[in-house]
Design a binder for these strands. Structure first.
Lengths: 331, 331
DNA sequence: ACAGAGATCGCCAACGTTTTCATCGATTCT
DNA sequence: AGAATCGATGAAAACGTTGGCGATCTCTGT
């Protein structure tokens, strides 16, 4: 079988306790024996059994990460950030995809919470109340959602929306549509609210359309309503929806940005690959993942302090080819 | 703290062993006590401590999944399939992204192998030799790669390529390019080989270009070489590369499919969203993930039998708008 | 009625680690 | 010089579960 701590102890001529100490509390053993123990451990290929360690310490060395839909390219980016940071800290991460289903989400939180030291909930779809009942059970941090008393990492959406709307009004747009995402999404509620605030402040008019699914199909479905709304620009809940709009507009012969400017949110890699390239508000994705792990690790290290740390990460407008002055269609 | 098996035992008036048996070997206890134990366990909210169980059984109840790049939409689909099937079987899955780096890959296999019952390697980039040294250490199954004596789930690439080339030659193409992906990718070697075989069999001519990174940028980089090769159709290593080609062709004013037909591999969701929609060979993604878990679970259940089970999954050509008869550009 | 078989269950050791607690020199302080 | 402190180590208990072994009891067949 695998090499255990006793094997190392025997080979190094010390007790098991000393081996443990040499490896995890180096200050407590004589430098000479410490090195000897470490060398023999190394040469024997010893790796502590995490189950045994977890049994006594109560820690698993694992983190859990829940995302609504890996199919939305936004989330893989966050996952990458989480992974990178977690592996640096020698944590492994359980990933679970909830398929945009809040019931599945709750079940997975319950199930995973026993197997991890802490949980990362990315854009959870459950209600605030449901979320609250789960908090306290396990250390957790929210990504892309805010809730009182719960640590979270969120983007500066209001500022992102301000950049987007400033861009559009500077181009001359005065009547702008917002295609809303899922009602259960905090990000959507926040974006809608920001849009209202910012558009009003700019003295322009906002038309709200939706809600639609946060996917390509949602955009396709909303496109005709956008056209009927007689706007000159449309801000989509996210890039996937924006791509759906773009697709349907192309199919109906609407020129973008000539007839209609389209603006997304997220800046998924895809946004720069399509034609016309999508103007969008870039959200920090990998960075959010890393920050969330940092927050969680900090929480695990000092459980009592700072009940609700919050990190707000900057956003940035990426101006590409899908936005322009209104009414400049060439044909 | 958490409720342990002793709490349940005390509450139900039996010994800890009986609780264990009532829950995991129901046949061994009297139906009446079994039900009583189960009810009290339920009411106390008892869940066995996995670390303790793992310590004695040597099983973790975890699976590991390695993918080269979550940013490639192909992999999230596989991941989804793996997750779904694993959760059904009450396994949790560790996900790790190797960033297309074979060294990181090897390290992660080593590291994860101690924390899981089995490993799923999706499109591993390491060499056959490296792979072989890792096998035997931990039960593992390969996805999208074949190696003697190792269980694997792969797509019927030759047949997929045959469908693709038949489609192109039926349209009248006689000189076809293949843009190769990473040299370290088995899938690429296999696709290239299939392309040679099938194109030759069809009496057409194949021009090989590359290797490029399996990403959008790879396609962009290869596009001009494709144009210089004077072909009428191009088959890309995968959809991402195909999209890169498409993008660069559009930028250079090349009409697709008028001047040049473009064909991809994978059928990532994105393929249907772009304009023109991409003709591509659809690979079973979620299905491959599920099949791989099935194989692994079967392997864990009966470690000795069938040293190298292999599942080959069918592929299917999705004809969309990026392919057509050669030389029909309208402008 | 009695031996043997089968069903049901409790006791206890074991899994590999961490963590007190105790031990034993060696050093420092008074 | 004796006491107190400190540094380094080992012995043993504990973590929560499982599984082998044996004890008890109820049947069955003779």
């Amino acid at each position: 079988m695998a090499v255990t701590i006793k094997d190392v102890a025997r080979a190094a001529g010390v007790s098991a306790s000393t081996v443990t100490r040499a490896l995890t509390m180096p200050a407590l053993v004589h430098p000479e024996t410490r090195d000897r123990v470490r060398r023999t451990a190394e040469s024997l290929g010893y790796h502590p059994n995490r189950a045994a360690r977890g049994l006594i310490t109560g820690r698993t060395g694992n983190l859990g990460l829940l995302v609504p839909d890996l199919g939305n390219p936004f989330f893989p980016s966050v996952v990458k950030g989480v992974q990178a940071r977690a592996h640096e800290a020698d944590y492994a991460v359980f990933l679970a995809d909830t398929d945009e289903d809040s019931a599945a989400e709750i079940g997975l939180v319950r199930k995973l919470s026993k197997q991890v030291d802490g949980l990362l909930l990315c854009s959870p779809r459950m209600t605030d109340d449901e979320l609250r009942t789960l908090v306290g059970d396990t250390p957790m941090v929210l990504v892309n959602r805010r809730l009182a008393r719960v640590p979270s990492v969120i983007p500066e959406l209001l500022d992102g929306m301000r950049q987007a709307v400033s861009h559009l009004t500077a181009l001359g747009h005065r009547r702008i549509a917002y295609v809303a995402g899922p009602r259960s999404s905090w990000a959507n509620r926040e974006r809608a609210r920001s849009a209202r605030t910012v558009v009003a402040a700019a003295g322009a008019e906002l038309v709200e359309i939706g809600n639609v699914a946060p996917q390509f199909e949602g955009g396709v479905a909303a496109a005709d309503q956008v056209l009927a709304a007689a706007v000159t620009a449309v801000i989509a809940y996210n890039d996937l929806v924006a791509l759906g709009l773009l697709n349907r507009f192309t199919a109906r012969g609407i020129a973008v940005p000539g007839d209609l400017s389209v603006l997304g949110f997220d800046d998924i890699p895809l946004a720069a690959m399509v034609h016309p390239a999508l103007t969008t508000v870039a959200l920090p994705k990998e960075q959010a993942g890393r920050a969330a792990v940092d927050l969680l690790l900090q929480l695990l290290a000092e459980p009592d302090r700072s009940p609700a740390a919050r990190r707000e990460l900057p956003t940035q407008l990426m101006v590409r080819a899908s936005t322009g002055p209104p009414g400049t269609a060439t044909d």
